[in-house]
Design a binder for these strands. Structure first.
Lengths: 131, 131
DNA sequence: CTTTGTGCAAAGGCTTTGCATGCTT
DNA sequence: AAGCATGCAAAGCCTTTGCACAAAG
């Protein structure tokens, strides 16, 4: 049993973590990559993929699947929540649904299921895009 | 404005529709393809993809994304419902959640979102796999 | 006969991986 | 100095598409 390995502090990882804290929405690995390079930080695409995976496993980043099956990532705040995602501009809101877990558990239990997990995303049009 | 085009009745499409009615679970396009061929019905993979898409657009088939981002399909009964999927054996149950749409609408409206759609899947362990 | 469906193979797009090099520690 | 991280390019996988042929209406 060795110490839990801390990832090394590299320019690329730092840049990505900073960017994750700045931009609130869900972006794909390729979009994070473009955004980094657009800001002048040269980072390889493979590195972005590897770093996002690493951060996801570490629980510092949230991954969801878009309806197209792409992986999209964002920094996650603590606590369990769901996402409300604008179809128009991609803006995302974290939605607390306090009753949902209990309710899902209860619903599943009626079918003999236990140990319930769930994936829930809401998609809609935000006020700006609706205007 | 012409009549709504009915798809042509072909051996391949019939075989897939029959199989969809027989197997209750979610399978990927490739899995449906394998299953067809395993049963002696030779159908091209591209045809399976195209037919599943066509059936999905026609509302006769349900598509969900697996956590890996793969598209998985199954015949769907009428009415909107969600899925309760066993992590152990893949068994799926259709769950009617009558209050959910209203509730999701209300929750989203608080954030100025409208025209809400959602994706909800529940994952758990069924009675058999729990034994 | 006309139109749509099929099959095959090739192309596309996202993601992962192998390997040599550079940077952290 | 040792080892993980990076970059690039190549490979992998799922899925879509182009095209010629077959089948349905």
């Amino acid at each position: 049993m060795t110490e839990p390995q801390h990832p090394r502090q590299t320019r690329q990882r730092a840049a990505l973590e900073t960017l994750l804290d700045e931009l609130p929405g869900f972006l794909t690995a390729q979009e994070w990559h473009s955004e980094l390079n657009r800001r002048g930080t040269k980072v390889g695409l493979a590195t972005v993929y590897r770093t996002l995976q690493s951060l996801t496993e570490a629980g510092e980043v949230d991954m969801v699947r878009t309806p197209e099956g792409l992986a999209a990532y964002r920094a996650c705040s603590t606590g369990h929540h769901h996402h409300l995602i604008c179809r128009g501009c991609g803006k995302t809101v974290e939605v607390e649904l306090p009753d949902f877990e209990r309710w899902a558990d209860a619903a599943a239990k009626q079918y003999g299921f236990a140990d319930i997990d769930h994936e829930l995303e809401l998609f809609g049009l935000c006020g700006d895009c609706r205007a």
